[in-house]
């Protein structure tokens, strides 16, 4: 129970394309490391028990609850957070813009997690149906919108990606 001599570990990982490192206690949550040590506060913590999905990030392209992951587990991994979604010129990405266009956010607290879940889905299955999307985002709680407009935004984005794929 004492932390007089909590051992620490050095970790290095890639976050949104940049190499970052830190020294952490083994028990430090990845969500806390991202928010406090890296000061990337776009990843939100809603329940700290892996249910609400607000802290969802991508590790090596796969969606993960950062509140259920220790920072040390991310050693050497490629992490993507909401801050990495912006276009190079600093503008909103088409997915982010679609969320705004469809009014897919109100308070915005769950939004970063939903954007990351949607990013993973659209990379793998841009042709996902509305039912597929409903299923894919069912691990991300939103208390404001009733989800419909979130599904609209992701479906709209998927439709556009599919059209781009076909024309390419």
């Amino acid at each position: 129970m004492t932390n007089e001599k909590q051992e620490t570990t050095a970790i290095t990982l890639t976050v949104n394309g940049e190499t970052m490192s830190g020294v952490v206690e083994p028990r430090m949550l990845l969500s806390d490391f991202i928010r406090q040590d890296l000061q990337l506060t776009g990843t939100h913590v809603g329940c700290e028990h892996g249910v609400c999905g607000a802290c969802t990030i991508l590790i090596d392209g796969v969606s993960v609850r950062s509140c259920l992951t220790f920072a040390v587990q991310a050693e050497g991994c490629r992490i993507e957070t909401v801050e990495g979604l912006l276009e190079r010129d600093g503008k909103l990405s088409p997915l982010q813009q679609a969320f705004s266009d469809h009014h897919a956010l109100q308070c915005g607290f769950c939004t970063p997690g939903l954007l990351m879940t949607a990013t993973e889905l659209l990379r793998t299955r841009p042709g996902a149906s509305r039912d597929d999307i409903r299923d894919a985002i069912s691990g991300n709680l939103c208390r404001c919108t009733g989800y419909q407009t979130i599904i609209d935004a992701i479906f709209d984005m998927g439709t556009r990606l599919l059209a781009e794929e076909k024309s390419a």
């Binding site: 776009g42 705004s100 915005g108």
Partner: peptide
């Protein structure tokens, strides 16, 4: 919405974000 850009880009100003 005016509020959207910051909330979508991870630049919201929630209380716990302040260090």
């Amino acid at each position: 919405r005016r509020e959207d850009a910051r909330l979508l880009s991870g630049r919201g100003r929630f209380t716990d974000d302040l260090l």
